[in-house]
Structures are given as structure tokens and as C-alpha cells.
């Protein structure tokens, strides 16, 4: 086996392994007459892969959007544990939440399609870079130095996710599998405290799923990043996650280790079906 020493830690959370890093409690979200989330709570522990599953319309993506600040829940708290104590994410704007260490991917690929893979990944470094105008116009000096400095970390992510061959390609021209991997990479370049992945394997065939699952495991095991994973493929979920939360119609119906959730009657009834028993 080839192992490689990485210079930069990709995980920025200082919470000890197994302790809660992200705590969602009693979150309620309503769109007009639709109660998208109704008193949902879950605890993501440092170093785990935490899967969120449920039928279509169960509120999985809504929950993720609440965490990353795209939606604002009417009720509840979402706390991120940091070295300087817990901060409530509710009411903060998406870019502020991103700067606190929440990185995410989207269900439909949301890359910057006219930019190259490298530029997309460098944008993952955006919130840790200086954006002063005059150095940018002058280029030589701080701006150039900063580009080179951050490029070193980006190259490690390229290495981890094996994106070398597409480095300079515009992402609009990439295959679906590569594009999904670039999105994962962009989130990783942020050196997140928690990584939120919204259906990273949707629309993939078995081999592509397997390959992406491997990358998610590498991110979790090698880089030590806590992952919240929304996914429909039960085999993947049961295989790689440490904890599974099941939603149905905006309510939490089960929460626990995969083997326990798999046999939960409420989950079988709402989502898995009798055949899974």
C-alpha cells in the first residue's frame, strides 16, 4: 500500500473524536402550509460519517440547507462546537457559516462551470485568502505569494482525490463522476470542521458509487473530517456510516447505528419496505 504524508490537515475541528461537533435540536421549518421539518434533532460526532436517509420529500435537503444557512428555520438551534465554545448557526448568512467551518456539496452539481478544476478548488480557499484590491491589481508581491501558498494545499486535495489529469480542464467539460469529485474537493479545500454531502452518489452506476464511497471514506479516515451524508443507496449508507438518522415527512423516526436502524419497524414501514427485513 502506498501511503503519503500530507502537510496540511484537512480537518479544522478541534473537538476530540467521538464528542459532538454539530448539534441540531428541535428544528422546525415551514414553507406556507408545508411543514418541511418538524422538531428534528441530531448530533454529529467528531470523526464519524453520519448518514441522513428518508423517502423523497422527507426533509433531508431542507435540513442541510438550514445548517448551511440557505434556509432559516423558524424554530430550534443548530450548534457548531468550536475551540472557543459552541456557536448557533441559525440566523447567520451562508458565507458566515462557511467561514465557521461548514463545507457542503449540492445535490445537483453546483460548480463554477466556466472555471477550471484548479480554479474551482482554489475558490475553496477563498475564505482563508486576502481579497485586498491593490495587491490583486499589482499581482507581484502578496497576491502572487498567496496564490502559491494556497496552491500547495489544493495540490494535496488533488492528490487525495486523484484529480491530476483534469487539473486544467474547465469543469463544464467534465464527466459526471469527475464533477462530483471536484465538488467534494472544493469543499475539502475549505479545511472544514464538518462536511455536508447532499446525495453525492445520485445518478451514478455501481462502480462510480463504489469509487466515490472510497473517496468519502478516505476523507473521513485519512483526513479525519466529520461527514454528514445524505444518500439514497442503502448499501452504501449501511456500509460506510457510523450513525444513521431517518426522516419521514419532516419528522425524525429513527436514529442510531446502521444495524439498529435497519431493523427498526418504523423505518421499514416508511422507507425500506418489507423486502429489506
Amino acid at each position: 500500500m502506498i501511503t503519503r504524508e500530507y502537510r496540511f490537515p484537512l480537518n479544522s475541528s478541534t473537538v476530540p473524536a467521538g464528542e459532538p461537533v454539530l448539534t441540531v435540536s428541535d428544528v422546525g421549518l415551514r414553507f406556507g402550509g408545508v411543514q418541511a421539518l418538524d422538531g428534528v434533532g441530531l448530533t454529529v460526532r467528531q470523526g464519524q460519517i453520519h448518514a441522513v436517509i428518508g423517502p423523497n420529500g422527507a426533509g433531508k435537503s431542507s435540513l442541510l440547507n438550514c445548517v448551511s444557512g440557505l434556509y432559516r428555520p423558524q424554530r430550534g438551534t443548530i450548534r457548531l462546537t468550536r475551540a472557543d465554545g459552541a456557536v448557533d448557526l441559525v440566523g447567520r448568512r451562508p458565507h458566515q457559516i462557511a467561514r465557521l467551518g461548514l463545507a457542503r456539496s449540492f445535490q445537483n452539481i453546483e460548480l463554477f462551470k466556466h472555471l477550471t478544476v484548479l480554479e474551482n478548488l482554489m475558490l475553496g480557499r477563498h475564505h482563508r485568502m486576502s481579497h485586498a484590491l491593490l495587491p490583486a491589481l499589482a499581482w507581484f508581491g502578496p497576491a502572487r505569494r498567496q496564490e502559491i501558498e494556497h496552491r500547495a494545499l489544493v495540490e494535496e486535495v488533488i492528490d487525495l482525490l486523484e484529480l491530476q489529469v483534469v487539473r486544467h480542464q474547465p469543469v463544464g467539460a467534465l464527466s459526471y463522476g469527475y464533477a462530483k469529485r471536484v465538488e467534494l474537493g472544493r469543499a475539502l479545500c475549505m479545511q472544514p470542521a464538518v462536511l455536508l454531502l447532499d446525495e453525492p452518489m445520485a445518478g451514478m452506476n455501481a462502480e462510480e458509487k463504489e469509487s466515490l464511497a472510497r473517496y468519502v471514506l478516505d476523507v473521513n479516515e485519512l483526513a479525519g473530517v466529520s461527514v454528514v451524508l445524505i444518500e439514497h443507496d442503502m448499501d452504501v449508507v449501511m456500509d460506510i456510516s457510523h450513525t444513521v438518522t431517518v426522516l419521514d415527512f419532516g419528522r425524525l423516526i429513527a436514529d442510531g447505528p446502521p444495524e439498529q436502524v435497519r431493523t427498526d419497524p418504523a423505518v421499514i414501514n416508511a422507507y425500506l419496505g418489507e423486502a429489506a427485513r
Binding site: H95, F106, K113
Partner: peptide, 18 residues
């Protein structure tokens, strides 16, 4: 780059801290 990120996808841009 952040200008171009806003052009290509503003929601994704805000999600990476722009």
C-alpha cells in the same frame, strides 16, 4: 476568482464563503 464565482453560481459561491 470570486467575481467569476458569483457570475457562474452565486448560491454555491456563498456556500464556500464568498
Amino acid at each position: 476568482r470570486s467575481f467569476m464565482a458569483v457570475r457562474d453560481h452565486d448560491i454555491a459561491a456563498s456556500a464556500i464563503g464568498v
